[in-house]
Design a protein around this nucleic acid. Structure first.
Lengths: 246, 246
DNA sequence: ATGTACCGTTGATCCACGTCAACCACGAAA
DNA sequence: TTTCGTGGTTGACGTGGATCAACGGTACAT
């Protein structure tokens, strides 16, 4: 029988020290005493319903966000209506780093499912990271990781063909689900084919066809948004050995 | 008549407070007294000859670099030999931010011409930015700006056609030369067609053809690496109104 | 001058992906 | 149950840019 946890104000408050995302989130690598101090940092949680915006391009920048539950996409809208998805974010990942440079957000963050974020006031983060040893480094690492990730996407968009892109995307998702304790081989995508396509620089039809092709070749089993990876080695091979060359 | 500056050890030492790149570089937005303290930060200059590496992917990360003179490209090499140029950097811009996340560099930085950088030990930067008010914020802004820039490139690679990409590239170069006090309309590209192509996700032939087309249309005058922009409005129009749509 | 190596230009052809269009699957609402 | 809307699949066809190939210009060494 399960113990009932009494609902108190204290238990509703966010506490990094209590959060089971520690090893994915900002506190990673910090000592216990440091993490205790982090609890001052996170002001509030905020719930965002599916399809709603966490922030929009142009919004004044005040805070960054750590995803506590759920997932998001970030995108940029061009004047002529074209949309570019710049990333998909899952639990433990940060949102809003783009806003620091101009003190206004430069993209939209939209929940792919009902989600919850920890609100981290940037002013407090600055303040605290001057004092708490590991926080400064960890925050810099988070930003740097975002830059490295973006370079990876640029490589994908700049030099890979459609099937390689999708294979890379699936392997990346698998790896991130694994890091969160889910199955590496079976997962549920929260985004549409069109959003995947936008992210990968492809049309939704091309994404769909590539999914079907992978299925025909026995690499994966697809049923709508549900994916089962049957041959992870085969997918990796697709990326390393593109089209046979002279 | 110009006064002769005596060459002493002191005058050879780098000094942010003396550097005329202040408004482009890390010290931007900092007070005079803050900038004075920055002088402790920059340990040494380093000269890099054309085509030589400032750092390579895999090198242990110890410092970031501010470009004092010259220009660089950064690139990622895929196992199969494909190269993706992830950026071109000019004076006042930062290099090496990618290394923080894993404590090793994740790309190569190669000089496009004989160049000189200021070496900023990362440990010192961390230390000093805990104390100096404006340095922490400015450094975060530099990283954030890199993220925003990368999103811009992702948009370009993911949703623009060849000529739009080249137009965006030229306008970006023009704007950066302008910020450095050079002509907005006439400049010298330091990179080859192949490098531009790699950056824009195009083959060098396509880049060359797009240059020729722009020239035929009277938008620019090209002579090898020398570019003159004749119709900046026309170039901007190219980006905002892509192919006429239904 | 003369060779040589790299870089850039241009043309001819090909093909991966976009476009257009029809249809199907699933879930929510009536 | 039917209806409706959104999202996904599949086919037929067109095209933008890749590929292949030849040639021209420039810079630098001899």
């Amino acid at each position: 029988m399960k113990a009932t946890v009494p609902i108190t104000v204290a238990s509703l408050k966010v506490a990094c020290s209590q959060c089971n995302l520690v090893e994915l989130c900002l506190p990673f690598g910090m000592s216990e005493s440091e993490i205790d101090r982090l609890d001052e940092l996170v002001g509030a949680r905020r719930k965002i319903k599916r399809q709603q915006h966490l922030y929009r391009a142009g919004d004044p920048f005040e805070a960054i966000y750590a995803i506590r539950a759920g997932s998001f996409k970030t995108d940029v809208l061009l004047e002529d209506g074209r949309e570019q998805v710049t990333g998909f974010q899952m639990t433990g990942e940060m949102l809003g780093l783009d806003g620091i440079s101009t003190e206004a957000h430069s993209c939209n963050a939209i929940a792919l499912e009902d989600s919850e974020v920890c609100v981290i006031a940037y002013s407090k983060l600055e303040e605290l990271s001057r004092v708490v040893e590991g926080l400064q480094l960890q925050f810099h690492k988070v930003m740097s990781r975002e830059i490295v990730r973006d370079h990876g996407v640029m490589t994908l968009l700049g030099s890979m063909r459609a099937e390689e892109r999708l294979a890379a995307f699936l392997l990346n998702m698998s790896q991130r689900f694994t890091a969160r304790g889910f199955s590496p081989a079976e997962f549920h995508l929260r985004m549409t084919r069109e959003e995947i396509g936008s992210y990968l620089g492809l049309k939704l039809e091309t994404v769909s066809r590539a999914f079907s092709k992978f299925q025909d070749e026995g690499l994966i089993a697809v049923q709508q948004k549900h994916i089962r990876i049957l041959d992870i080695v085969g997918l990796k091979r697709l990326i390393q050995h593109p089209t046979p060359r002279p």
